[in-house]
Nucleic acid binder design. Structure first.
Lengths: 141, 141
DNA sequence: TTTATTAAATTGATATATCAACTATTGATA
DNA sequence: TATCAATAGTTGATATATCAATTTAATAAA
């Protein structure tokens, strides 16, 4: 069987195409951040106060990578590390007012982009797609 | 809508999990190459004699990245750059005997792995999955 | 034929990913 | 309590990705 017909190859291909497209859009709009940074920012917005370890797990990235991305987002004053009361090893990562403003500014465009990606796909099909992807994720453990 | 429910996020997540799993397997087996290198090698096996530009397109990677990966695969004597008759700018990339042996050695395990990834998914569902992924790829242009 | 443009591959600069080692802190146990 | 092990985050080393610039060759135009 040719590798083009292997489902994992197609999944990876789709991911690469989508990320490339998004990154180009980000640059065209002069957003000044990468797709991975945006994803992390959104996760923080939706789950205020998580630790870096938790962020790493949610975004499927290495904790070291999270450290460095947070440094960048912090330099832009989009997020901040807050001390955790009963544990001085970890930080609680929060969105700043600035970060919220940034997200609010670009969210409509991101939503357009998300809509565009599923153009011509029914809700039923989307559910199926999600279910199958989850199944594959489970299989890879 | 939470980012976990965005289909592009799930696709990327699946891709990351699968790649991580594969890479671990590669290391466990002592294969000595990365997943991306394996993919390129397979593409070369299945399409003997392509140019680097064509390989870049097929694997959705940058030509510069292909150059460097080919240097690695060449150092392992898995592939070779052959002069092209009527165009001295490009190379025809071919699998060596050594590369063929390597693929033959590990292909059964890769096949197991591919099977594992689609465990519990019917052929019908796989077709649907493929169709939807292709649709998304088209949407991102 | 000479010159200018386009193209394939390479190289250098830079960004970001992972892993391993390290630091500081916490938790467990003797 | 003192010691040892485990944990969160950071840092350094390394690998690999992209983009831009460069080199060499092919093609088009003057």
């Amino acid at each position: 069987m040719k590798i083009e017909n292997v489902i994992l190859f197609q999944i990876d291909k789709t991911s690469k195409i989508a990320k490339l497209y998004s990154q180009r859009e980000f640059e065209r709009l002069g957003m000044g951040i990468t797709v991975e940074q945006w994803i992390l920012l959104k996760i923080i917005e939706e789950n205020d106060g998580l630790t870096q370890k938790e962020l790493a797990a949610k975004s499927l990235r290495d904790p070291a990578s999270i450290t460095r991305t947070l440094d960048l987002l912090n330099k832009k004053e989009f997020v901040e590390r807050r001390a955790v009361e009963d544990n001085r090893r970890q930080y609680s990562i929060c969105l700043t007012r600035n970060g919220k403003t940034f997200i609010d500014k670009f969210m409509p465009i991101i939503n357009n982009h998300r809509s565009k990606s599923i153009d011509g796909i029914s809700q039923d099909e989307l559910n199926t797609l999600n279910r199958l992807l989850e199944k594959i994720q489970q299989n890879m453990h």
